[in-house]
Design a protein around this nucleic acid. Structure first.
Lengths: 158, 158
DNA sequence: ATGTATGCAAACCATTTGCAACTCT
DNA sequence: AGAGTTGCAAATGGTTTGCATACAT
């Protein structure tokens, strides 16, 4: 699996904007806090706190796990960060914007991330039928992905 | 909140059927295992392992938490039991049949349980749009319930 | 009799908390 | 200077595992 990363220049600019948002709220900009932001802006997908603390396998300096959790919490309160629970592992953290929602496969555990609007049709139907406003940001829409579905249908029907 | 329970007679009959299923698979029917089944058949909604171990607040004998987990796992392998993750608390266990799916409110944490068929329309739309077969048995469909939605819309729109 | 399941204790993972030392503003 | 943050260590909650004993078959 190839891992693509955002351009360092773009990441840096975004981090500075986020840092500015922190200052506006009277929050301090420590090295540890910057590091969390850099990890999140530099990453493709959502990250565990542990991976952030370990500096994304050495691409960034490492920091204390407890502080990472505290900073993620702070950044979440500020609205810059969200976390999602994909399956049974640790929670995964990502930038709050742009807003992604997740489809997770119960069988192979593959995760597909889609823009919010792509789920608006389903959201509308859920709202009409149940009056709920569905969100797949914190818990994914779980099911069998097309591959696993095909596989299970291959075996079925006696 | 009133807690309704299934009739003891009905529970007992169901437990015996389940016990029979266990024997057919060569599994033993110990007191601890029976107790887990009795708790699940007697309960209205999904239960935490801890509540089962504590004998549903004294209505049943208590048993060891580790054994409860082991038995729940066994019963899940056999297909008699399922577990669901509603929010951040412990996993909750329920009978696999009849199949229920869950809607959970992200704001007030209320949970609505619905029969599988009620979500077939949504499942069809998910399948058409993404090719996924959606299941809301292990993770619920999460969103804002009608109450919390009304409340949040009351405040909104500046 | 024999392997399975139990109960207790200890380990485990993800996360949170207490606290003294440090550092951003 | 002074409040916000850090790093480390210890506590927490949920769940799993090791192991000797007890029990269902």
């Amino acid at each position: 699996m190839t891992t693509t990363h955002r351009s360092p220049a773009l990441t840096a600019a975004n981090v500075e904007a986020a840092v500015e948002a922190l200052r506006e709220r009277g929050l301090r900009v420590s090295a540890a806090r910057r590091l969390v932001l850099e990890a999140l802006y530099g990453a493709e997908g959502p990250l565990s706190a542990e991976r952030i603390a370990e500096g994304l396998e050495g691409r960034l300096p490492r920091s204390d796990l407890a502080s990472v959790y505290r900073n993620l919490e702070t950044l979440e309160e500020v609205g810059l960060v969200r976390h999602v629970h994909l399956g049974h592992g640790p929670g995964l953290y990502a930038l709050a914007a742009p807003e992604h929602e997740y489809l997770a496969c119960e069988s192979c555990h593959a995760v597909r991330s889609v823009a919010r609007e792509e789920l608006d049709g389903i959201r509308a139907q859920v709202r009409e039928q149940f009056g709920y406003e569905a969100r797949f940001t914190h818990f994914p829409l779980v099911g069998l992905c097309p591959n696993c579905l095909a596989e299970s249908e291959g075996h079925a029907h006696p």
